[in-house]
Every structure is written in structure tokens, then in C-alpha cells.
């Protein structure tokens, strides 16, 4: 078993989640870790993928804060608008005025948002046991861990696909590849989204993902393992 885990990162992550459930998992998070994750051999189209994006004040979870959370689901490799969600997170106490202007989000909007911990718990309700999609996975992962008071090396109860990693895997020989979301979209002939918020960016990420899946798999069936490995 351990040998297979060595070569199968999905299995390895599933194992880490089990271990965490046994030791170190806060009681109120246990139900999330009890869920089974998709198998590495599973077909991607048979699983729900939730594309998410956070708007934050910066990239350091210790000093920066989540402003809003948006997401949309991909089912059968089709983005389904009716599954989209978006909410603000009440970190108004920490918001400096100048950063609020940049994000078009005012302290008033935020003060009507969800409490930070509750916001992340509600997100976990959607994500646990599924495949999560982000662009640059570390930002979202680290902010979630920070909000849940988890250690940096703790596993999260879902599999994660990363469009940034997938894009790099498709251009292995290019050293200075620009992997910002908007550049990737431009390169892939996707329409330009001028507005930016957590929901638009999660949609933009989901669209990029669909194009990458076609590039990687062509006519063959997309599997979880291959995408997880490249992410």
C-alpha cells in the first residue's frame, strides 16, 4: 500500500486526510475529513469540480484578510451557472481605506458579510470530498488553513487542481512563461473579462480549465490522477 502511495499522490493525500482525522483534527471539522475523495483512476467528468477564488488584501494569510469568496461548479466538464455563489467576508475591522478602493469593496459592504470563520466553514460544506479548482492554489489553501487555525502542513479535505500548474505543465520548456490568469486567457483566445471579483475570477479559471483539459487529453478520457499530478 505504501508503495502505491509513493507513486499515487491522490492516494497519498487521501491517506494524509485519514491520518489527520485520527490525530490533530478539530472536532468540528471531523465530518469534512470523513468524506471519501475521488479515486485517482476516476474520470474527471464523473466528478464535481468547484472552481473558487478569494479576493484578499494581500497574499500573506498572517497579515492579510479575505474580502470575498466566489465559486462555480463544473459538472460533466460543463460550467453550470446555476451553481455559482459569492459572498463577502466581514473583515471590515482590518481594512485599510486605500486597499478598499482598489478592490471596489467598502467597509460597509464587508460589515454585512459573513463572519470569517463561518464563511470558510460554509465553503467547506461545498468543497469537502470534491475536487477544488483554483488559479495558484497556495493562496486559497493557505487562507483556508489560517482561518481554520490549521497548521501549514495540515491536509485539506478535498483534492485540488491548479490552472497555473496545469499551464506550466503544458509549457515545460518555456522558462519565463507568464502564467497570470488574464495572460493565459488571452493566449487561449478566451474573452477578456474586464471586471474582477471573486466570482468572475472563479469563472475565468473554470473556463481556462476546460481548455487545458482538451489540450492535455484530446479525445481520450480525462482522469483525476493526471490532472492532480500536473497541478
Amino acid at each position: 500500500m505504501w508503495l502505491r502511495r509513493l507513486f499515487d499522490p491522490v492516494l497519498k493525500h487521501q491517506h494524509a486526510c485519514h491520518c489527520f482525522l485520527e490525530k490533530g483534527c478539530p472536532a468540528e471539522l471531523k465530518k469534512y475529513y470523513e468524506k471519501n475523495l475521488p479515486l485517482s483512476s476516476a474520470k474527471v467528468k464523473d466528478h464535481k469540480i468547484v472552481s473558487i477564488d478569494f479576493e484578499t488584501t494581500g497574499i500573506d494569510p498572517a497579515n492579510d484578510y479575505i474580502l470575498s469568496i466566489g465559486g462555480i461548479e463544473i459538472i460533466d466538464l460543463t460550467i453550470d451557472f446555476s451553481t455559482s455563489f459569492h459572498y463577502y467576508v466581514n473583515n471590515s475591522a482590518h481594512i485599510k481605506e486605500d486597499s478598499a478602493i482598489i478592490n471596489q469593496i467598502t467597509p460597509e459592504i464587508l460589515s454585512n458579510g459573513k463572519e470569517p470563520y463561518q464563511g470558510i466553514i460554509e465553503l467547506l460544506d461545498r468543497l469537502a470530498g470534491t475536487i477544488v479548482l483554483t488559479h495558484c492554489k497556495f493562496i486559497e489553501m493557505n487562507f483556508i488553513k489560517e482561518a481554520l487555525n490549521l497548521k501549514k502542513n495540515a491536509p485539506l479535505p478535498f483534492l485540488i487542481f491548479d490552472t497555473m500548474g496545469l499551464e506550466r505543465s503544458l509549457h515545460r520548456n518555456e522558462n519565463n512563461l507568464d502564467v497570470t490568469l488574464s495572460t493565459i486567457r488571452q493566449r487561449r483566445g478566451l474573452p477578456e473579462y474586464t471586471a474582477h471579483n471573486a466570482l468572475v475570477d472563479s469563472l475565468a479559471t473554470a473556463e481556462v480549465f476546460l481548455t487545458q483539459v482538451k489540450d492535455i487529453f484530446g479525445d481520450t478520457e480525462a482522469t483525476v490522477l493526471e490532472l492532480y499530478r500536473r497541478s
Partner: peptide, 29 residues
């Protein structure tokens, strides 16, 4: 809010029940 988005590569072909009875198609790009 009910739109579904798909992506197809050049030369892909759709026919029969993948396109019948599902709805209308609108080209974004």
C-alpha cells in the same frame, strides 16, 4: 444564471443526443 458553458477544440463534432432536446447554443467565442 442558468447558462452552461462548454469548450470545444477545432475539429470536434457534436451530433444526435448530445445536441437534441438540450436547449439553444450561443457562441461566446
Amino acid at each position: 444564471t442558468k447558462i452552461k458553458i462548454n469548450y470545444y477544440k477545432k475539429d470536434e463534432v457534436l451530433e444526435n443526443d448530445s445536441i437534441t432536446g438540450v436547449g439553444l447554443f450561443m457562441i461566446r467565442t
